[in-house]
Computed example of a mutant assay.
Amino acid sequence: MKTAERFTDKRVKRELFPLTTFVLFFVMFAVFTTVQMMMIGQVIDYQSLPLGNTVAVFCFWVAAAVGSTVATALTVRHYYQKPLEEVSEAARKVAAGDFSVYLAPRHPMDKTTHLDVLCMDFNKMVEELGSIETLKTDFFSNVSHEIKTPLAVIQNNAELLQQAHLTDAQRQECTAVILQATRRLSNLITNMLKLNKLEKQVIQPLPQPFDVCAQLCDCALQFESVWESKPLDFAADLEDRCTITADAGLLELVWTNLLSNAVKFTPAGGQVRLTQRSDGRTLTVTVADPGCGMDEATQARMFDKFYQGDTSHATEGNGLGLALVRRILELSDGTVTVTSAPGQGSTFTVRLPLTAAGEETPA
């Protein structure tokens, strides 16, 4: 039934072998026969030929033309038309949302043809589309969950505030919880917008020379109240000055997110270490914490959107920080790596060129 449907596709307006193909073969055989006879010195006088011989020659040309047309049609149908129909049917299935479609190559790998390459590229396209669809589904699921949680907190505490018997302390507590939930929701939306703009390259880095050591100090001081209240020990080992040509606003997001994670996962009494070095061409910044660490499975997914390996700190973030870090560094020609093990803390290492692409490194 499916084969019949392919051959009767109403979108096909012209067959590969119409009547003109038969006429072409017929004329070719007539011309070739005449030329061949002329080349051997025998000019055929068709007017003086007996009617039977003329009919025989004509029938020969017809039979040869029909045979050549049929043989060519069968060959092309088997090796080209049928595979193209299979690709067309598979494309319709993919367009309908079926990403399990697979086209098997028709020849071994050492004898691949253009059709085999087409099938392999089609399978790769379907695989990528399936991955995008999965990511989209996961994205909406995660976004819904991340938004629903603070909204539920806001709703519950707003309902409590409507009760008349609450004390002033209880009302202040509900108000504080609502403010915390709204800040979390605002932070989530802000990070989503930033990440979306970075991925679509709406935000382009604007490299300008600046002192990255001063920027690292400013970012660290933002967490002073946090490490004093927890309490934590903060150790910084920075050069006196290091000039880098990059987008200062985007790099500030990198340092802030890495330091925020380090402070969040470091237990009370632990030490967060910030180190910066440069060798004339490359800037290296490391942020280390003695927290819970990560296993290999968590490290493999830590840069995924909304992924949070340690759910005990889920209310303190939304799983977009490291995704932002990686995307910013990709746009800045930098890299980020992590060294971690369960129970042994984590060390994030960022490497960036001191000069933007196309600029000369200062002597």
Rank of each mutant, 00 (worst) to 15 (best):
R327L: 02
E146F: 03
S48I: 00
T266S: 13
R241K: 14
Q208D: 12
L195N: 13
V27C: 11
T266I: 06
E127S: 07
F29Q: 09
W227S: 05
V126F: 04
T182S: 09
T256V: 09
T266E: 07
W61E: 10
I189D: 03
T349Y: 10
Q299F: 12
T72Q: 06
T355Q: 15
I203C: 05
T21C: 10
E159Y: 03
D121V: 03
V23R: 03
A90W: 12
L320T: 07
T190S: 14
D168K: 02
I40W: 11
F26H: 12
V43Y: 14
F303N: 06
P290L: 06
F122M: 05
H313W: 08
S131W: 04
A323I: 04
T311F: 13
Y307R: 12
L320P: 01
Y307K: 10
N318L: 11
K93F: 13
M38W: 12
D168T: 03
L115T: 05
F60V: 02
Y80G: 00
P18A: 05
V350C: 08
E15D: 12
L259K: 00
Q172L: 13
T54E: 09
W61G: 04
V285R: 00
S225N: 11
F306H: 11
Q170G: 07
N157H: 15
Q170I: 05
T167M: 07
P108H: 02
Q204S: 11
Q344F: 09
R273E: 07
R183Q: 06
W255I: 06
A56S: 14
V212A: 09
E360V: 11
Q170F: 00
Q180Y: 05
D304N: 15
Y46K: 02
S346I: 02
R281T: 13
H165S: 15
G249E: 06
G269A: 05
N187E: 08
I147V: 15
L198T: 03
T175V: 07
G317R: 03
V55T: 08
F99S: 07
V177P: 04
T349I: 12
A248P: 04
S340W: 03
G130K: 00
D121K: 02
G345M: 13
T335Q: 14
L188V: 03
L188S: 01
Q47G: 09
I147N: 01
P290V: 04
